[in-house]
Nucleic acid binder design. Structure first.
Lengths: 148, 148
DNA sequence: CTTGATGCAAAACGTTTGCAAGTTT
DNA sequence: AAACTTGCAAACGTTTTGCATCAAG
């Protein structure tokens, strides 16, 4: 299993940081989300499994994970920062109804963009990263009486 | 002149909000920037022309402008929110050296993306807006001994 | 004159910090 | 045992709020 405790532990140790219980819990939990939660949401969820973990530890841990490139920060129009288990280049879908951020996989679009910038460069600007965010509304399809 | 006091006043009144001195000052000042300043930066600059304007008013005014679609919010990896005079779809360049955000005009890329999504849609997701941000480093070209 | 905007100071919010006590290696 | 991590509570920086005063329509 990809995100087993053992695997999580190894990721942490591989990054050269101690595999403490709060870290394992937070990093593992994050790996299970399809959306990208805030520190507060992680705190709520982690607390269920590991009661006593403080919010400060959530923040400190997330910062360590980000510094060690195990996790990515995601900013939003909202106040709070979100965290993403994935650190590779991908597209984010922002649902304006639920405020949830999810991933969108589209290698074709990735290619389109990167090919475009191979031929065209921006004057006096060295491109390090191209970020694409798609805002919109997720449709929650019901099996019966489909609202769409 | 595009961004004259008169023109600014009309924009405010056209949006149905009172054209007060702080609003005129803030909105006009914002129109003159090539980058996208924070509330604090606007406060510093506005204060020079209109001493006595409070930071709270800057925030309240910006919120009103955003609500009335005269100004756009821009989020960054940093703590603070930035504000953009332009409300039409365009690309942002984030300079990682100076933390400045500037506009990048590329109708060709805009077309490329919008054409792409005409043929391809995202399952269960209604696209409202596509945002492209380019992170990188602005090169400050010297006249002689060009570093590039 | 009516309505809505301003300024002030206080509060709120997410996030960070210092430090003593506790864990991991 | 050494080095690092944790929890707590207090501090932080940005943004918001309540309310009395003031300005715009």
């Amino acid at each position: 299993m990809q995100n087993s405790i053992e695997h999580i532990k190894q990721s942490l140790q591989g990054a050269g940081i101690k595999a403490t219980l709060p870290r394992i819990g937070i990093y593992q939990l994050l790996s299970t989300f399809k959306h990208h939660p805030s520190a507060e949401e992680l705190y709520q969820k982690v607390s269920k499994k590991y009661p006593g973990v403080s919010l400060a530890t959530i923040y400190k841990t997330l910062e360590v994970l980000v510094q060690n490139k195990l996790v990515n920060k995601v900013v939003t129009d909202e106040d709070k920062v979100r965290y993403d288990f994935r650190t590779d280049q991908h597209i984010h879908l922002y649902c304006q109804k639920t405020n949830k951020i999810t991933d969108y996989e589209d290698p074709e679009l990735d290619d389109l963009i990167s090919n475009y910038f191979k031929s065209k460069s921006i004057p006096d600007f060295i491109i390090k990263q191209i970020q694409i965010n798609i805002q919109g509304e997720k449709q929650h399809i019901k099996t019966k009486k489909n609202k769409l």
